[in-house]
Computed example of a mutant assay.
Amino acid sequence: MTAFLVIGVIGLALLLVSLVVGDLLDGVVDGLFHSLEWLTGDWFSSAAIGGFVSAFGFGGAIVEGAAGPRPLAVGVGLVAGLAFGWFAMWLTRLLRTGRSDEAPSPRDAVGLDATVVTAIPAEGFGIVRVVLGGHTTQYNARAEQPVEPGTPVHVTGVLSPTAVTVAPVWRELP
């Protein structure tokens, strides 16, 4: 059981190191397996290797701790290691290819509800506040008819990077 626990701790240490210098470690792994291109990339990233090693060690330790035979401990460790290694690879790929935290644009506001902050005159601009991606954003707004402050509106279009068109929200009749 001690050997499996040591393997699990080594895997956790590798996971922690991969959080800090993961790209550097991944470059070393890619360099070592350069002639075997199918091994490089996400399959043998430091996070996937760390996930496999730690789950293998702790999975085997659990089975041996429950008085299971060593071959069963190795089998359970391999299955757990493959599952956690795959999950670490999937999560790493998801984080690398995910969207960045780019600033919201008025195009993202089209179709959302907003609130008028300053009055929108008949032939001019007012200001509306819209919650966009969890952020409260204000845009200059133009409407076909005058709109008073506090009125709920719907963003209908984009005039510029700082201005949108809006229309009052229809209230349901009782």
Rank of each mutant, 00 (worst) to 15 (best):
L15S: 07
L16E: 13
V17C: 02
L19F: 14
L19V: 11
L19S: 09
L19K: 10
L24W: 05
L25Y: 04
D26M: 02
G27S: 06
V29T: 13
G31Y: 01
G31A: 11
L32M: 05
L32W: 07
F33E: 03
S35Y: 00
L36P: 01
L36V: 14
E37G: 07
W38R: 09
L39T: 11
D42G: 06
S45W: 10
S45K: 08
S46W: 00
A48P: 00
G50C: 05
G51C: 01
G51I: 01
V53Q: 00
V53N: 04
S54C: 11
A55N: 07
G57N: 03
F58G: 01
A61T: 00
V63W: 02
A66I: 15
A67H: 15
G68T: 10
G68K: 07
P69M: 09
L72A: 13
A73Y: 01
A73L: 06
V74M: 10
G77S: 10
G77W: 03
L82Y: 08
F84Q: 02
F87L: 13
A88H: 09
W90H: 15
T92G: 12
R96A: 13
T97R: 12
S100L: 15
D101G: 09
D101L: 06
E102V: 15
P104C: 11
P104V: 08
R107H: 11
D108C: 11
A109I: 02
V110F: 14
G111L: 11
G111R: 15
D113Y: 14
D113F: 08
V117E: 04
T118M: 08
I120T: 01
P121W: 14
A122I: 09
A122C: 14
G124L: 09
G124K: 02
I127S: 12
I127M: 10
R129I: 01
V130N: 00
V131R: 00
V131H: 11
L132M: 10
G133M: 05
H135A: 10
T137M: 03
Q138F: 05
Y139R: 07
N140K: 07
N140M: 05
A141E: 02
R142H: 04
A143G: 08
A143Q: 01
E144F: 14
